[in-house]
Design a protein around this nucleic acid. Structure first.
Length: 348
DNA sequence: AATTCGGGGTG
DNA sequence: CACCCAGAATT
């Protein structure tokens, strides 16, 4: 038994050391949020939730320019934050990050907490993001469990698990805590993510470049692409939505969505399941297919000359484009803007 | 334990 | 077209 534990300790240390050594040679060291302090780490980690690095980079730079520190973010209006976030998706992240900044000013002396418990009191920071902030931002001990880590651990240690189940989550967290080293924790943490994204791919893993190939269970049994087990697929319903845009004297009528549900807090026109019988259509545009995580919308945009009395806020298209608006709404308004510059004329 | 939150990249 | 991505909150 003692010998078995000793062997496991060697395996664990071999794993962590191999990842650290690999990271120093082949990992990423010049991402925009690296070497920029814990605030930058926090913002980047929120943006990177379920979002790829390449997508995040430009949003991150714009965000840091507009909100260079926690105080600036706390003092901003939520609409400014959502405007920067516009197009990135998962807009609760923007609302949470703004609320968190105000909580930090009010409850944490204006400084990002440097312990797991306080970090997880902030909305939008769960266990993995808190671990990443601890390790990457504060250079303390912190444990993460993201898609990269799940894939590497399930392969290397032979966990034939559905990555979704509660049981699997628990085991993978246990594994991640076990392998994460106290020494060079931040290098290891960056390394395991870089390894997952650049070597241990889902479909075509580059095992010949992998520093832990010799201890990898999946490689030993030649089943690397088959782990982890795929999630159970769910069918995605499709809906038609009429995007009824009030139009008057060159301006578009928009309203702010409530802070819950799809596109919470963003500016949108009417989104209707069915077109009203009596509607004065000024102009229609081609349909847009918009795919969410769990449903698909066929969006049919049109400019309408009525329902005007219900609208409190009117914007010229170029001004509307500066608001926090969802991607397909942006696409439609850009078309309208272009249209308007060239030919669009309102008939009285 | 399952669903709900965007949008883009990739095969 | 289907799946995944530096997940968390909600039910």
């Amino acid at each position: 038994m003692t010998e078995s534990v000793g062997t496991n300790e060697l395996l664990k240390d071999n794993f962590a050391l191999s990842v650290v050594t690999w990271q120093e040679k082949f990992g990423r060291h010049h991402l925009p949020w690296q070497h920029s302090g814990a605030y930058a780490t926090w913002i980047s980690e929120i943006m990177l939730q379920q979002t790829q690095v390449e997508t995040v980079i430009n949003y991150f730079k714009k965000f840091m320019t507009q909100f260079p520190n926690i105080a600036a973010l706390a003092n901003a209006n939520i609409d400014e934050v959502l405007a920067i976030w516009s197009g990135l998706g998962y807009y609760a992240r923007a609302r949470n990050i703004h609320k968190s900044a105000q909580m930090i000013v009010n409850d944490f002396d204006g400084k990002l907490p440097s312990n797991i418990e306080d970090l997880m009191k902030l909305p939008g920071i769960g266990p993995s993001t808190a671990g990443a902030i601890m390790a990457l931002g504060h250079k303390h001990y912190g444990v993460i469990l993201d898609g990269n880590v799940k894939r590497i651990l399930s392969r290397c240690f032979g966990r034939h698990l559905d990555g979704q189940s509660h049981h699997a989550q628990k085991q993978l967290w246990q594994l991640s805590y076990w392998v994460t080293p106290e020494k060079n924790c931040h290098i290891y943490t960056q390394g395991i993510m870089d390894l997952g994204s650049s070597v241990c791919h889902k479909l075509h893993p580059q095992c010949n470049q992998c520093p832990i190939q010799s201890i990898c269970y999946a490689h030993k049994y030649n089943i690397t692409p088959h782990l982890p087990y795929p999630k159970v697929k769910k069918n995605k319903p499709s809906f038609t939505k009429h995007l009824v845009i009030p139009y008057h004297q060159g301006k578009l009528g928009l309203m702010k969505r409530p802070n819950t549900g799809i596109w919470g807090g963003l500016w949108v026109p009417f989104i209707l399941d069915e077109l009203p019988k009596e509607i004065s259509t000024f102009r229609t545009y081609h349909s847009i297919k918009h795919i969410f995580t769990h449903q698909t919308w066929i969006i049919k945009p049109l400019l309408a000359n009525d329902h005007l009395d219900q609208i409190e806020h009117w914007f010229y298209p170029e001004d509307a484009l500066q608001l926090g608006i969802p991607k397909p709404v942006r696409d439609v308004i850009e078309i309208i803007h272009h249209d308007q510059i060239n030919t669009l004329q309102e008939v009285e």
